[in-house]
Amino acid sequence: MKRIYATTIALAAALAPALIAAPAHADPLSQTGQNQLVDRVIQRALSQRGVPFVYGGGDVNGPTNSARARAATTRSALTDITGRAILPSTQGNPPVPGSVTPGLPGTSLVPSEDMPDTTTVGFDASGLIQYAFAGAGIKMPRTSGEQCSVGQKVPPAQARPGDLLCYGPGGTQSVALYLGNNQMIEGTSPAVSVSPARTSNMVPYLTRVLSS
């Protein structure tokens, strides 16, 4: 355990200055076209600052309510035969169907009152990414884990605006859009916001969907 903890600290220390480093230069022959697409993605994401966070919220057309997330949880509840609690994600994505909490006595399926109301429209982390990339004509998968599995994996030292920062195993907990200058935008509680790029719990690579 001590070795794992020390490794985590060392990795975070290595990633922090790398994210601040100047972006690597694209090939000049294709840089203009790629930059235009990246700008569209970033501006589309920035246009949603302040939009509320909603589990399961957002798609290619904009913010939505939590009906999709509620439906997914209901389906999981009906098919889960273990009788153990379904875990909602904690970092900006809808509950993961089939996820359970093993070994906890007295747990039960997540009650409906714990789900977000269906009157508020907004984004979760992956919903915002899907909406942003649709501005460049790119149809992204809907979950953060799927989004972090596409494109090119690049080291943080080569971070460019438009790259994805992924959190949790395989990016399954959350995903954010890197803006450059050590800033990112994320669909997180309480609302879509810009913040310093964080390295805590980040996977050791960035995902580049638009590459030159």
Rank of each mutant, 00 (worst) to 15 (best):
A125G: 12
L128I: 05
M140G: 10
F133I: 06
P141Q: 13
D124C: 04
L128S: 08
E113W: 15
E113L: 09
G135Y: 11
G135Q: 08
D114E: 12
S112P: 00
V100W: 01
K139E: 15
V121A: 11
A125W: 01
T120E: 01
G106D: 12
G135E: 07
V110D: 03
P111T: 02
M115R: 14
V110N: 03
A125H: 01
M115P: 01
T118P: 00
D114S: 13
V100L: 13
R142D: 10
G98F: 06
D117L: 00
S108T: 14
Y131S: 01
Q130T: 14
R142Q: 12
L128N: 05
I138S: 06
A134M: 10
R142W: 07
T107W: 01
D117R: 00
D117T: 01
G127Y: 02
V100D: 07
T120S: 06
P116Q: 05
A132H: 06
F133E: 01
P102K: 08
A132M: 04
P102W: 09
E113V: 12
L128V: 04
R142N: 11
V110S: 10
I129A: 12
V110R: 14
M140Q: 07
A134G: 11
F133H: 03
A132Q: 05
Q130P: 00
V121C: 02
A125S: 15
P97F: 03
Y131H: 14
P105M: 08
I129W: 03
S112Q: 12
G137S: 13
K139F: 10
G106Y: 04
I129K: 03
P116H: 08
D124P: 03
P116G: 04
T107V: 13
T101N: 12
M115K: 07
G137K: 11
P116C: 06
K139S: 15
I129Y: 04
G135N: 09
Y131D: 11
P111N: 04
V100Y: 07
P116D: 03
A136L: 08
G122N: 05
G137V: 11
T101W: 10
A134S: 15
G106C: 08
P97H: 09
Q130M: 14
S126V: 05
S126N: 06
P111F: 01
V100F: 01
G122M: 07
V110L: 15
T119V: 09
T107Q: 13
L128A: 12
A132Y: 10
T118D: 08
G106K: 06
S108G: 15
G98S: 04
I129H: 04
P102L: 11
T107N: 15
G106N: 15
T107M: 03
P111E: 05
R142F: 11
Q130V: 07
V110Y: 12
S99K: 07
I129R: 04
Q130L: 08
D114N: 14
P111I: 01
G98Y: 09
T120P: 00
T119S: 14
T101G: 05
I138R: 10
A125C: 15
D124G: 05
G122A: 07
F133M: 05
L104N: 11
Y131T: 03
G103C: 05
P116I: 02
T120I: 13
G122D: 02
A136M: 13
V110E: 09
P102A: 13
G103N: 14
A132P: 03
K139G: 00
T118A: 06
S99I: 01
A134V: 02
